[in-house]
Simulated assay, not measured.
Amino acid sequence: MDALASVVNTSAPSLYISLLSITFNPTAWNIVARNEYRKKTITRAFGSPYHGCYFLAILIFTFGLVRDHLYQCALLDQPHVPLLPGPLATLVPVLLFIVGQVFVLTSTYALGITGTFLGDYFGILMSHRVEGFPFNVLRDPMYVGSTMCFAATALWYERPAGLLITLYVYILYLIALRYEGPFTDMIYSSRSEVKKEE
Protein backbone atom coordinates (compact mmCIF):
# COMPACT_ATOMS: atom_id res chain seq x y z
CA MET A 1 0.00 0.00 0.00
CA ASP A 2 2.89 2.35 0.81
CA ALA A 3 4.39 1.68 -2.62
CA LEU A 4 1.12 2.71 -4.28
CA ALA A 5 0.87 5.83 -2.13
CA SER A 6 4.32 6.89 -3.30
CA VAL A 7 3.22 6.98 -6.94
CA VAL A 8 -0.48 7.87 -6.68
CA ASN A 9 -1.87 10.86 -4.82
CA THR A 10 -5.32 9.51 -3.98
CA SER A 11 -6.27 12.71 -2.16
CA ALA A 12 -6.11 14.83 -5.33
CA PRO A 13 -9.64 15.75 -6.49
CA SER A 14 -8.32 16.16 -10.04
CA LEU A 15 -7.68 12.40 -10.20
CA TYR A 16 -11.34 11.58 -9.61
CA ILE A 17 -12.55 14.38 -11.88
CA SER A 18 -10.37 12.95 -14.65
CA LEU A 19 -11.65 9.40 -14.07
CA LEU A 20 -15.21 10.70 -14.08
CA SER A 21 -14.73 12.50 -17.41
CA ILE A 22 -13.06 9.41 -18.91
CA THR A 23 -16.01 7.28 -17.78
CA PHE A 24 -18.60 9.81 -18.92
CA ASN A 25 -17.60 10.01 -22.57
CA PRO A 26 -18.10 6.46 -23.89
CA THR A 27 -20.99 5.85 -21.49
CA ALA A 28 -22.89 8.99 -22.49
CA TRP A 29 -22.32 8.56 -26.23
CA ASN A 30 -23.50 4.95 -26.14
CA ILE A 31 -26.67 5.95 -24.29
CA VAL A 32 -27.32 8.93 -26.58
CA ALA A 33 -26.62 6.91 -29.73
CA ARG A 34 -28.89 4.02 -28.76
CA ASN A 35 -31.65 6.47 -27.92
CA GLU A 36 -31.12 8.07 -31.33
CA TYR A 37 -31.34 4.71 -33.07
CA ARG A 38 -34.61 3.84 -31.33
CA LYS A 39 -36.35 7.21 -30.97
CA LYS A 40 -34.58 9.60 -33.40
CA THR A 41 -34.58 12.34 -30.74
CA ILE A 42 -31.66 14.33 -32.18
CA THR A 43 -32.78 13.85 -35.78
CA ARG A 44 -36.21 15.27 -34.92
CA ALA A 45 -34.64 18.20 -33.04
CA PHE A 46 -32.39 19.12 -35.99
CA GLY A 47 -34.71 18.05 -38.82
CA SER A 48 -32.03 15.91 -40.46
CA PRO A 49 -29.96 12.87 -39.48
CA TYR A 50 -26.86 14.54 -40.95
CA HIS A 51 -27.32 17.75 -38.96
CA GLY A 52 -27.97 15.68 -35.83
CA CYS A 53 -24.87 13.57 -36.42
CA TYR A 54 -22.70 16.67 -37.00
CA PHE A 55 -24.05 18.18 -33.77
CA LEU A 56 -23.19 14.99 -31.89
CA ALA A 57 -19.74 14.97 -33.54
CA ILE A 58 -19.06 18.48 -32.22
CA LEU A 59 -20.18 17.42 -28.73
CA ILE A 60 -18.05 14.26 -28.74
CA PHE A 61 -14.99 16.13 -30.04
CA THR A 62 -15.42 18.96 -27.50
CA PHE A 63 -15.92 16.63 -24.57
CA GLY A 64 -12.87 14.68 -25.75
CA LEU A 65 -10.78 17.86 -25.53
CA VAL A 66 -12.16 18.56 -22.04
CA ARG A 67 -11.36 14.97 -20.99
CA ASP A 68 -7.78 15.33 -22.26
CA HIS A 69 -7.33 18.63 -20.43
CA LEU A 70 -8.67 17.15 -17.18
CA TYR A 71 -6.32 14.18 -17.61
CA GLN A 72 -3.35 16.52 -18.00
CA CYS A 73 -4.43 18.48 -14.90
CA ALA A 74 -4.72 15.22 -12.95
CA LEU A 75 -1.22 14.16 -13.99
CA LEU A 76 0.28 17.44 -12.79
CA ASP A 77 -1.18 16.77 -9.32
CA GLN A 78 0.43 13.33 -9.14
CA PRO A 79 3.93 12.37 -7.92
CA HIS A 80 6.70 12.73 -10.49
CA VAL A 81 8.75 9.54 -10.81
CA PRO A 82 11.28 8.91 -13.62
CA LEU A 83 9.96 5.92 -15.57
CA LEU A 84 12.41 5.43 -18.43
CA PRO A 85 16.18 5.90 -18.62
CA GLY A 86 17.95 8.72 -20.47
CA PRO A 87 16.84 9.52 -24.01
CA LEU A 88 14.11 6.86 -23.88
CA ALA A 89 12.21 9.13 -21.48
CA THR A 90 11.61 11.45 -24.44
CA LEU A 91 11.78 9.07 -27.39
CA VAL A 92 9.29 6.43 -26.22
CA PRO A 93 6.41 8.78 -25.35
CA VAL A 94 6.91 10.81 -28.53
CA LEU A 95 6.85 7.70 -30.74
CA LEU A 96 3.92 6.23 -28.81
CA PHE A 97 1.96 9.46 -29.19
CA ILE A 98 2.73 9.76 -32.92
CA VAL A 99 1.68 6.16 -33.63
CA GLY A 100 -1.45 6.62 -31.52
CA GLN A 101 -2.39 9.79 -33.37
CA VAL A 102 -1.76 8.09 -36.72
CA PHE A 103 -4.26 5.38 -35.75
CA VAL A 104 -6.82 7.93 -34.57
CA LEU A 105 -6.48 10.33 -37.51
CA THR A 106 -6.28 7.70 -40.27
CA SER A 107 -9.30 5.83 -38.92
CA THR A 108 -11.21 9.13 -38.78
CA TYR A 109 -10.18 9.84 -42.38
CA ALA A 110 -11.16 6.34 -43.52
CA LEU A 111 -14.56 6.46 -41.81
CA GLY A 112 -15.40 10.12 -42.45
CA ILE A 113 -17.27 12.31 -39.98
CA THR A 114 -20.49 10.31 -39.97
CA GLY A 115 -18.66 6.98 -39.83
CA THR A 116 -16.52 8.13 -36.93
CA PHE A 117 -19.18 9.89 -34.91
CA LEU A 118 -21.93 7.27 -34.69
CA GLY A 119 -23.66 8.05 -37.96
CA ASP A 120 -24.91 4.47 -38.21
CA TYR A 121 -27.15 5.12 -35.20
CA PHE A 122 -28.69 7.96 -37.21
CA GLY A 123 -29.33 5.62 -40.12
CA ILE A 124 -26.32 6.97 -42.07
CA LEU A 125 -24.71 3.70 -43.07
CA MET A 126 -21.53 3.16 -45.04
CA SER A 127 -21.88 1.32 -48.32
CA HIS A 128 -19.22 -1.23 -47.33
CA ARG A 129 -16.97 -2.15 -44.44
CA VAL A 130 -13.70 -0.18 -44.30
CA GLU A 131 -10.85 -2.65 -44.67
CA GLY A 132 -7.87 -0.43 -45.55
CA PHE A 133 -5.34 1.05 -43.15
CA PRO A 134 -5.56 1.20 -40.17
CA PHE A 135 -8.41 -1.32 -40.07
CA ASN A 136 -6.26 -3.92 -41.82
CA VAL A 137 -3.85 -3.66 -38.85
CA LEU A 138 -6.24 -3.29 -35.91
CA ARG A 139 -9.94 -4.00 -35.42
CA ASP A 140 -10.46 -0.89 -33.28
CA PRO A 141 -7.65 1.52 -34.21
CA MET A 142 -9.34 4.59 -32.77
CA TYR A 143 -9.63 3.12 -29.29
CA VAL A 144 -6.13 1.60 -29.45
CA GLY A 145 -4.67 4.88 -30.69
CA SER A 146 -6.42 6.86 -27.98
CA THR A 147 -5.14 4.47 -25.29
CA MET A 148 -1.61 4.81 -26.68
CA CYS A 149 -1.89 8.61 -26.40
CA PHE A 150 -2.96 8.33 -22.75
CA ALA A 151 0.07 6.12 -22.05
CA ALA A 152 2.39 8.45 -23.99
CA THR A 153 1.21 11.45 -21.96
CA ALA A 154 1.78 9.59 -18.68
CA LEU A 155 5.31 8.67 -19.79
CA TRP A 156 6.03 12.20 -21.04
CA TYR A 157 5.07 13.75 -17.69
CA GLU A 158 6.65 10.80 -15.83
CA ARG A 159 3.57 10.15 -13.72
CA PRO A 160 3.00 6.47 -12.81
CA ALA A 161 -0.58 7.37 -11.85
CA GLY A 162 -1.12 8.17 -15.53
CA LEU A 163 -0.27 4.59 -16.46
CA LEU A 164 -2.90 3.36 -14.00
CA ILE A 165 -5.40 5.78 -15.56
CA THR A 166 -4.38 4.43 -18.98
CA LEU A 167 -5.15 0.90 -17.77
CA TYR A 168 -8.56 2.15 -16.64
CA VAL A 169 -9.11 3.73 -20.09
CA TYR A 170 -8.20 0.44 -21.76
CA ILE A 171 -10.63 -1.55 -19.59
CA LEU A 172 -13.37 1.02 -20.15
CA TYR A 173 -12.87 0.85 -23.93
CA LEU A 174 -13.04 -2.96 -23.84
CA ILE A 175 -16.36 -2.72 -22.01
CA ALA A 176 -17.66 -0.10 -24.46
CA LEU A 177 -16.69 -2.29 -27.42
CA ARG A 178 -18.68 -5.21 -26.00
CA TYR A 179 -21.76 -3.02 -26.37
CA GLU A 180 -20.87 -1.03 -29.49
CA GLY A 181 -19.60 -3.87 -31.68
CA PRO A 182 -22.64 -6.18 -31.53
CA PHE A 183 -25.05 -3.25 -31.76
CA THR A 184 -23.34 -1.89 -34.88
CA ASP A 185 -23.29 -5.39 -36.38
CA MET A 186 -27.04 -5.62 -35.69
CA ILE A 187 -27.67 -2.30 -37.47
CA TYR A 188 -25.85 -3.46 -40.61
CA SER A 189 -27.40 -6.92 -40.41
CA SER A 190 -30.86 -5.33 -40.30
CA ARG A 191 -30.04 -3.33 -43.41
CA SER A 192 -28.91 -6.48 -45.21
CA GLU A 193 -32.18 -8.19 -44.32
CA VAL A 194 -34.18 -5.25 -45.62
CA LYS A 195 -32.22 -5.27 -48.89
CA LYS A 196 -32.87 -8.99 -49.32
CA GLU A 197 -36.60 -8.45 -48.93
CA GLU A 198 -36.70 -5.65 -51.54
Rank of each mutant, 00 (worst) to 15 (best):
R34K: 07
R34C: 05
N35C: 14
N35H: 15
N35F: 14
E36M: 05
E36D: 10
E36H: 04
Y37A: 01
R38F: 03
R38L: 04
R38A: 01
R38C: 01
R38Q: 04
K39Q: 13
K39A: 11
K39R: 11
K39C: 08
K40F: 00
K40H: 04
I42G: 07
I42R: 06
T43F: 11
T43C: 12
T43D: 07
T43W: 08
T43S: 15
R44S: 06
R44L: 02
R44V: 00
R44D: 01
A45L: 15
A45R: 15
F46Q: 05
G47M: 07
G47A: 11
G47R: 12
G47I: 13
G47W: 08
G47S: 09
S48F: 01
S48G: 02
S48T: 02
S48V: 00
P49H: 08
P49E: 10
P49K: 05
P49D: 11
Y50A: 11
Y50H: 10
Y50E: 15
Y50W: 10
H51K: 12
C53R: 02
C53M: 05
C53Y: 03
C53S: 14
C53A: 13
Y54E: 08
Y54Q: 05
Y54G: 00
F55C: 08
F55H: 05
F55M: 09
F55L: 07
L56R: 00
A57P: 10
A57G: 13
I58Y: 11
I58D: 08
I58G: 12
L59A: 09
I60V: 13
I60M: 11
I60R: 12
F61M: 12
F61D: 07
F61C: 12
T62N: 10
T62E: 08
T62I: 14
T62A: 15
F63D: 07
F63A: 05
G64W: 02
G64E: 03
G64L: 00
G64Q: 00
G64N: 02
L65T: 14
L65F: 15
